[in-house]
């Protein structure tokens, strides 16, 4: 019965009693999911142990499969229910505190075509994205989502192998300068970026640019369709700020400046804004953790000073 309450509310703007009730209901959902998971794990382990006594490999495989099915049947639904509600309540509440015009879709992501159209990222064979958020921070519109890109290949023995090309967050910000040419700034250890080369039209090809900041050149590869545009976008200040971001944010960075937008790929092997059924729901701690994760987004706007509109709209 309490689900209706949890389903349709978030903590924001509610009085303390209501807020506490919602957190309690959320905690009850977590406990229910956790208990089911524990039962499923115990049953699964027992089945596997028993099957080992029979020694037959086929039975062992069937037992493992059965154990997984039991786990899924027992706790997948309740876990999903808890995670969905956690995101609707805790995560959305933190977003609303930090951003305006929030549109959060936990089960949706950035469309693969959006990243593919940049033509700056190897898209592999498998694409998965969730935790889509579109909002405004300091009046700068942005989109962000968790993204996983993998390559799949089958070897001569018929075994399937997965290679992760990208796992992290993809951000799209409105950029505060107008530019005509595409520009890519790729950290040297970001290995799966791609760029238009030999087979593209000459005017679309990206060429390596050496900027005057030696340290920046050591950390990043810069490619642009028009060299002077790279110097226009990457001012000494912006280069300094990108180095600062690189020091502050763990992971590899890819910056793509396309159509007056800044795409940022942060390859950190992390899945942000996730709930765990084995962690107690604590409104304060969870909010702090979420705000910490949100700082990945705000850092780009704050450090790169994307809200500085000095260069926007003045072209004659």
């Amino acid at each position: 019965m309490y689900m209706n309450n949890v389903d349709n509310q978030n903590v924001n703007g509610m009085n303390t009693n209501n807020s506490n009730n919602i957190i309690m209901e959320l905690e009850n959902l977590r406990l229910k999911a956790r208990n089911r998971a524990i039962i499923a794990i115990i049953i699964g382990i027992l089945i596997v142990i028993l099957s080992f006594f029979l020694i037959q490999p086929f039975i062992i495989i069937m037992a493992i499969a059965g154990a997984l099915l039991i786990y899924r049947a027992l706790c997948a639904k309740s876990t999903k229910k808890f995670v969905d509600n956690y995101k609707k309540i805790i995560i959305l509440d933190a977003f609303n505190k930090k951003f305006s015009d929030v549109n959060y879709k936990p089960n949706l992501g950035i469309d693969s075509n959006v990243i593919a159209q940049t033509q700056m990222m190897n898209m592999g064979d498998i694409y998965y994205s969730n935790d889509y958020i579109n909002a405004k921070y300091k009046n700068i519109n942005f989109e962000s989502a968790d993204v996983l890109i993998q390559d799949v290949y089958t070897d001569s023995d018929g075994d399937t192998h997965y290679t992760t090309l990208f796992q992290g967050q993809w951000f799209i910000f409105d950029f505060n300068k107008s530019f005509k040419a595409d520009l890519q700034v790729c950290e040297k250890n970001f290995t799966n970026a791609k760029r238009k080369g030999l087979f593209a039209k000459k005017e679309e090809q990206l060429h390596k640019v050496e900027l005057e900041d030696i340290e920046f050149n050591k950390l990043f590869n810069v490619y642009s369709q028009v060299e002077v545009e790279a110097f226009y976008v990457l001012t000494p200040n912006v280069m300094q700020h990108i180095k600062e971001l690189n020091n502050k944010i763990p992971g590899s960075l890819l910056f793509c400046f396309i159509n007056n937008k800044l795409h940022v790929g942060l390859y950190n092997n992390k899945d942000l804004f996730e709930a765990s059924i084995f962690r107690k729901v604590d409104a304060v701690k969870d909010e702090q953790r979420t705000l910490q994760e949100i700082s990945y987004i705000t850092d780009f706007v704050d450090i790169l000073q994307l809200d500085n509109t000095l260069f926007k709209g003045g072209e004659m």
Binding site: L211, E229, F231, Y232, G313, G314
Partner: peptide
């Protein structure tokens, strides 16, 4: 005001052109 914004914009383009020139000269 519009002209002021424009001058900032063209200044930035001039800076970019100057930096690119100097960078290539330096190399």
């Amino acid at each position: 005001k519009t002209l002021q914004q424009s001058i900032v914009e063209v200044e930035e383009h001039l800076q970019a052109a100057r930096r690119m020139y100097n960078s290539n000269v330096s190399i």
